[in-house]
Design a protein around this nucleic acid. Structure first.
Lengths: 353, 353
DNA sequence: AATCGCCGTTTAATCGTTTAAATTGGAGTT
DNA sequence: AACTCCAATTTAAACGATTAAACGGCGATT
């Protein structure tokens, strides 16, 4: 019914101009509701746009505007529930702000990270949320600065980074956990998990060492296994064999703790009674495990939201002073360390019979 | 040291042309290693590009090429570990193919889905991976077709959809589960979870009804609660009160099953002994729960990979016949239904004392 | 009646890359 | 010497939206 030049190609503002009897400039302004265009013309343009099935071409607009309304989210692994939660928080804020999200998951490979970052700069993304890989080339910081893309860093630091930063207080979190375990009477505590020594690992180590030394305990039992369920499970045997005196394990994160709990059961030990286990993150599963896991809430979703807000602010005011926000680590005491009032309890009715 | 016109603005092929003493066309071709450009010139161009800090401008290239090397992944909720796994699979294949990934998570809101899809078309994405929301306007299918964007549908069907499709055999999965439960002697079985009646829910219902009717059992106990941990947990009480005869629950997914297991414990019941529970998905947690969860593996990661491959194929051959791939549902028998040889077992050593 | 101002619209240049077509400079043929 | 051919490069025209500047028309002012 309409006069589109070629049904194969998508309609442009010129087509809309032709059908509405105006010029392309008018169409451009009308569609963006520029007050300089009269109400009446605007309506005419709008109906014409619908009629020809006009679809806004952002590539063209981006080229002209030197911007894209796209944000890049650069993370280690989207399959990790922690990052997934974080992404959901980021997504919520950015959707509201009308931005699209590039998911750049580099699988903990710094080279892939580098190529993803280049790609983002080629796309003229308006901003980057970066959780840098362990092994990131320190020169990357300069490169990012040269690109002049607003950037907020997450969870892991980089040497001499000038970027805004959002994280959880890992050090204090682990410190609190250790204090809790020491108060419960544990005298031989191990730290388990964290094979990549980025800041998120080192800060945990620091918290561990601080607390143990404060109480004049041995802080040398740090084991660098991959922080996963599988590794946690198989590591238990090694730990029991080589360090039978250890009565409590501070795990890098919740999944490592779950793995260790399973490993203990396999050896006939009951976590929370025969051995204390703690986690970090407070994923959903932590609450209804048996025993429920004592852990630190790291507020992944909220952190994603914060970081996104911070990036939007940085985009608006590129020259404002560097922002930094460390979310407090919140200790959540449940049953996995025993003697805390949570064990034995109705959570384990099966054990009673 | 170099002659960039304005240090504020990023260098273009023209800058590279000037510095290398060639033309912009030569630069364009040289950088893409077009064989028409001599080896020597290419090298000259390449060093000049590095010298001026040239960054490829994809907005410009996209405009000219009418393509973007971007794929849109449209899903319900990235925080859902199932979708997170799926995304990881998609990401793996697409990264390898040099595509970027738009994460479009619509939070189970069909309107947000619609606006995300428009946005994707505006961006001229090269393809879309769509897991459609419950409540998707049936006209959306036509709209998508008009946009002429290659599209692969995931997990959920749409009426009269012409798109390629990848999913798991939900129906057969639930059917197998029911057969298993019936063989174990259960005579009053409930289906729990699935508040949105998209195909992924209806197919499960169908499997449930098929199997139960085949054995002349009552197939009417279908409860439409939100398929989450929390809902599963609180639903147990209702179920026990209103249908005390029910001895087994077929859950919509694993997390609902975990919730129900926790709910049972709270009532002093031991899942796998006093009541049978099954899940769907086989998330990591299913394996080291106590008791371990009998479930169906739905291969989320692999499904993501498949869908991505299918989309790439569709992009290459837009006119090939419609592809469809239903991954077989694989029943994994563990301890949560009792009497299956898995209970009592060394998995529950704590109970023995 | 001439001038000014203003509103609504159009003209035309621009963003940076790609590519069909034109051009240049040799080498090879007759 | 005049020709063709070919390879290597350049010219110039797109792609579609944006926007500064120009324009036309009309009412108000002097």
């Amino acid at each position: 019914m309409t006069t589109i030049t070629d049904p194969k190609k998508r309609a442009t503002i010129k087509d809309v101009a032709r059908v509405s009897g105006t010029s392309s400039a008018t169409v451009s302004m009308a569609l963006r509701k520029d007050p300089r265009i009269s109400e009446e013309t605007r309506r005419r343009v709008e109906t014409a746009a619908v009629e020809v099935g006009y679809v806004y071409n952002r590539s063209a607009a981006n080229l002209r505007n030197q911007s894209s309304d796209i944000i890049g989210l650069v993370i280690g692994d989207i399959a990790n529930p922690f990052f997934a939660q974080l992404s959901a928080g980021v997504n919520e804020v950015l959707t509201e702000a009308g931005k699209m999200l590039f998911l750049a998951s580099y699988n903990e490979d710094p080279e892939r990270q580098a190529s993803l970052l280049s790609r983002l700069s080629e796309q003229s993304v308006d901003g980057i949320l970066l959780c840098p890989a362990f092994g990131t080339d320190p020169a990357m910081v300069n490169t990012l600065q040269q690109w002049q893309i607003p950037c907020v860093q997450l969870l892991r630091t980089l040497p001499d980074s000038p970027f805004d930063y959002v994280s959880t207080d890992y050090r204090s979190g682990i410190d609190q956990i250790c204090e809790h375990l020491i108060a419960l009477g544990h005298r031989h505590i191990a730290f388990v998990g964290g094979d990549r020594l980025h800041s998120a690992t080192l800060e945990r180590h620091q918290g561990f060492i601080d607390a143990l030394q404060r109480h004049e305990q041995d802080a040398s039992l740090i084991f660098h296994i991959e922080p996963s369920r599988r590794s946690g499970r198989s590591f238990v045997e090694t730990l029991r064999r080589e360090h039978p005196e250890v009565s409590a394990a501070v795990c890098f994160n919740d999944v490592t703790a779950f793995g260790m709990m399973a490993g203990l059961r396999r050896l006939g030990l009951v976590p929370g009674r025969d051995f204390a286990i703690t986690g970090f993150d407070n994923v959903e599963e932590a609450e209804d495990r048996i025993p429920a896991l004592t852990t630190i809430d790291s507020h992944a979703f909220e952190m994603g939201r914060r970081a996104a807000h911070m990036l939007l602010a940085r985009m608006e005011f590129p020259d404002q002073p560097r922002q930094q926000h460390i979310l407090p680590a919140e200790l959540i005491i449940r049953g996995s360390c025993g003697n805390s009032g949570a064990l034995p309890s109705p959570e384990l009715p099966g054990d009673r019979r």
